[in-house]
Nucleic acid binder design. Structure first.
Length: 864
DNA sequence: GCAAGGTC
């Protein structure tokens, strides 16, 4: 007689084998996978571990062409269950052929039952031997032996409940995801998938709801009346000072016990007049009376043992580690033998848990020794929670280890701190409660009631080993009932109510857990899915919703509100629970579930336009925002994004809200465009662009040099006053020439050296008052500093001075461009050309290049 | 290419 058993995973299989085989186990290989052979109660046993689910549902091939199948059609199609891990399927069949009996020995939960049925289905393709079930809730020898001694029938209903979930999740996810994705793509170009699912969507919904309340929040003013009391007797204080507004009255050195703060019992007063009235009554008060003093001792118990959710929350809250990473680290710590299995719902230690030897182990580890020793001096009583899901023990350390040991064994930087959290949490579970003494004082000031309270930690208990919770003491000085205390300061402070805070990952996990979204192991995945889709993002410990996520949730909550709320999951869960309980046929549940999904789908379809246009708008906006090169700004008409649009016929500034919004602005036809982020147009231009290297263009206005405000937007660094009008001369630099122009555009221009690095100096010419220039040629000739003003005797010296420098270079440059003119070239700048005309008439295709180059060419000719 | 659930 040969019995073949299938466990959920290899680790469990080897554990079962070593328990039942009592050490006499042979590890064999079946289709390349490990299995275990041993004798038990006179029978041959073969145990193999699966790898969780080895099959998965999918739609038949012909339905997987997104563009050929209407997504709604999927709701009427039965998905097929296919093998996803072929090697496991082969091994199952291989072993089944040798079996006289098959035992399903997967985890004791719905998915475990279903995984067992996957093996059963495959086995039944090759054999018809009986299939039984071994049910154990932990891998302890006691439990495992008991389970294999008392085999029961596999639970068909339980397995089919999981089956129904799989089918309904897939139908809904696939149909909705394809529908939204494809509809949005009709309106916006995107490769992104906009997914929707019964877990991911409500998860995003929690963040959305919080964001909505934050956005809707309106701050309100409130007033708070506080007093700073001094435990010194009021009578003894010097009479001066100590009135409202609070000068320091008492003699600091003599005060016994010190100061403490009290708050008027009215708390946050929203009525300004009322606050002022109370404050008026307090006027002149110099002392308060301790009318009543109560002292209470309170105990704070250690936290419950860690189950997965609690662990993930604490890793996020205390260590700032994301749930996804925390689970990964815990998995690795588990595989390296430092901690127990990280996926558990149980927060209660088993009755026979061996605390003593584990704590002894910790007593040998320096960092934990004092805590372990304090635990060992008394009988160990663990703090326990109420959840016993019969799956795995709470997450706890398997052995004591130092940080160094952990970090050398597990190659994740966060591993030591995660281990430390688990170890400390475990020790905290075994330590006494922390004891606080809470004092409350009731004071009277001019008959007005004030409260003050403080806490003193009397016995730190478990807090000793648990530095993550920071319980700060607020100490009160020692006072007695009937005693009078001085008043150092009275204030009536105005504050504003603050908006709710963004959700933290820990809070989100709590919400998911409470609402039954996901399982212990999948909650981090759902958060991750939302991040991957661009719906959510985390910054440190807080989680916020991105525009795409917000618009999608907004659209969904208007069309299919239930989808954004946890109810959707709850409805499906209720259905499949009925299947598990045998109250509903599998087929009936499927039909009802599908009907529910169809109804939602119809609502989605009916509101397709409303739903998708806003999402498409957001997607376009985000893409436009990302495209920094073309991003212009926000459309004043509709609030969407303005960006440079390039078409076959030309280019312009357009709105992503098109066609609903037709706001647009023309652009010059030629020249490379650069959006200048740091400059703004003072004449209502939407943004300022640099065209080529030549001139600026204000979107909505036109070229800046035709604008009378240019000198205001781009106040040019002026050289000196214009000799023709009351304007100022400033340097105008084009790609191939430069000269001085007048800010008043009177038409007067003045030449400057055409080559070399020209710098305007702060120093001025003593004769004419123009600023001096410094010229650094590209060759090795020395720098020159000079006045450029031809109408100044100083300046004329420069222009008259013959030499190489600028002139030579002009010649060289000219020879490239105009060989004929090169031989006799004189400085191009020798004439006072009037080039203002070229500035104002060259639009919009920017023939400026041509005109200005003509200017220099003309200069060369003229000088010939 | 879609979901959620196992596990690695």
């Amino acid at each position: 007689m040969t019995v073949v058993a299938f466990a959920e995973k290899n680790k469990a299989a080897s554990q079962i084998a070593s328990i039942l085989g009592e050490g006499e186990v042979e590890r064999i290989t079946v289709e390349g996978l490990p299995a275990y052979e041993f004798k038990w109660k006179g029978e041959e046993w073969l145990v193999m571990g699966l790898s969780g689910h080895i099959m998965n549902y999918d739609f038949p091939e012909q339905y997987n062409k997104w563009n050929e199948v209407n997504p709604g059609v999927l709701l009427g199609v039965d998905p097929q269950k296919l093998v996803t891990r072929a090697e496991y399927a082969a091994a199952v069949k291989n072993l089944a052929k040798r079996a006289n009996k098959i035992v399903l020995a997967c985890d004791y939960d719905r998915e475990g039952e279903n995984i067992g049925f996957e093996a059963k289905t495959l086995a039944e393709e090759v054999t018809n031997v009986p299939v039984e079930r071994a049910r154990f809730s932990s891998l302890s020898p006691k439990e495992v032996k008991k389970a294999f001694e008392s085999l029961i029938d596999p639970d068909y209903n339980m397995a089919m409940a999981a089956e129904a979930r799989q089918i309904l999740d897939l139908k809904m996810g696939a149909a909705f995801t394809r529908f939204v994705t494809l509809s949005v793509r009709e309106r916006a170009r995107t490769k992104d998938i906009l997914s929707i699912g019964p877990c991911q969507t409500p998860t995003c919904g929690f963040v959305y709801e919080r964001e909505k309340t934050i956005r809707a929040f309106q701050a309100k003013d409130f007033w708070k009346i506080t007093a700073i009391f001094s435990a010194e007797s009021g009578k003894e204080r010097e009479k001066e000072g100590g009135k409202e507004g609070g000068k320091e009255g008492g003699k600091e050195g003599e005060i016994k016990g010190g100061d403490f703060e009290g708050t008027h019992r009215a708390g946050n007063i929203h009525d300004k007049e009322k606050a002022a009235e109370i404050f008026k009554r307090l006027k002149g008060a110099k002392e308060g009376l301790i009318a009543k003093k109560t002292v209470k001792e309170t105990k704070t118990s250690p936290p419950n043992p860690l189950n997965t959710t609690e662990f993930l929350k604490r890793a996020s809250k205390f260590l700032g580690i994301s749930p996804e990473l925390a689970l990964e680290v815990a998995e690795q710590l588990y595989l390296a033998g430092f901690t127990s299995y990280p996926r558990t719902e149980t927060n209660k230690y088993a009755d026979d848990f061996d605390f003593k030897s584990l704590v002894f182990d910790f007593a040998r580890q320096k960092e934990y020794r004092p805590f372990a020793e304090s635990i060992l001096i008394a009988p160990i009583v663990p703090k326990n929670g109420e959840k016993d899901a019969h799956d795995h023990p709470p997450i706890h350390p398997i052995r004591a280890a130092s940080r160094g040991e952990v970090s050398s064994a597990v190659n994740i930087p966060q591993a030591p701190e995660v281990y430390d959290l688990i170890a400390r949490h475990f020790l905290a579970n075994l330590m006494p409660a922390a004891v606080f003494e809470k004092t409350h004082l009731h004071l009277l000031v001019h008959e007005e009631p004030f409260d003050s309270s403080g806490t003193v930690l009397k016995d730190s208990g478990w807090l000793e080993v648990y530095p993550f919770e920071n319980k700060k003491d607020k100490l009160l000085p020692f006072v007695e009932e009937g005693q009078k205390v001085g008043i150092k300061k009275l204030s009536n402070t105005k504050s504003k109510t603050s908006p709710p805070k963004k959700l933290t990952e820990a809070e989100l996990l709590t919400l998911m857990d409470k609402n039954g979204i996901g399982t212990k192991a999948t909650a981090p995945t759902h958060i991750e899915t939302n991040k991957k889709r661009g719906y959510l993002e985390t910054k440190g410990k807080t989680i916020s919703i991105l525009d795409t996520g917000f618009t999608l949730m907004d659209g969904l909550s208007l069309t299919v509100p239930i989808l954004v709320k946890p109810e959707i999951r709850a409805k499906i869960e209720a259905l499949i629970q009925e299947v598990e309980d045998g109250k509903k046929e599998f087929e009936t549940a499927l039909d009802e579930g599908t009907a529910l999904i169809k109804e939602m789908y119809a609502q989605l379809e009916a509101n397709k336009k409303e739903l998708t246009s806003s999402i498409a708008g957001t997607i376009k906006d985000e893409a436009a925002l990302e495209d920094k090169k073309n991003y212009i700004g926000t459309c004043k008409v509709c609030g969407h994004v303005l960006r440079i649009v390039q078409t076959d016929s030309g280019r312009f500034v357009g709105c992503t809200g098109y066609p609903d919004c037709r706001n647009s602005y023309p652009l010059p036809k030629a020249g490379a465009l650069t959006v200048l982020r740091s400059k703004e147009c003072k004449k209502e231009g939407v943004a300022v662009l640099k065209v080529g290297n030549k001139y600026n263009w204000a979107v909505g206005i036109g070229p800046c040099f035709t604008c009378d405000l240019e000198k205001e937007c781009y106040p040019p660094e002026t050289v000196g006053s214009c000799p023709e009008c009351d304007g100022n001369m400033f340097l105008i630099t084009f790609k191939d020439t430069r000269f001085l122009g007048c800010t008043k555009r009177c038409g007067y221009t003045h030449s400057v050296p055409k080559t070399g690095k020209l710098t305007l100096l702060d120093r001025t010419c003593e004769t004419c008052g123009w600023k001096l220039f410094r010229l650094k040629e590209e060759d090795d000739s020395p720098e020159k500093e000079f006045c450029v003003n031809r109408r100044c005797p100083e300046g004329r010296k420069y222009w008259k001075k013959p030499g190489k420098g600028a002139e030579t270079r002009i010649r060289e440059k000219a020879s490239v461009r105009r060989p004929a003119a090169s031989s006799a070239a004189k400085p191009a700048a020798s004439s006072e050309t009037s080039s203002a005309a070229s500035l104002s008439t060259s639009l919009p295709s920017s023939p400026i290049t041509e005109k200005t180059s003509k200017v220099s060419a003309a200069g060369l000719k003229k000088s010939k």
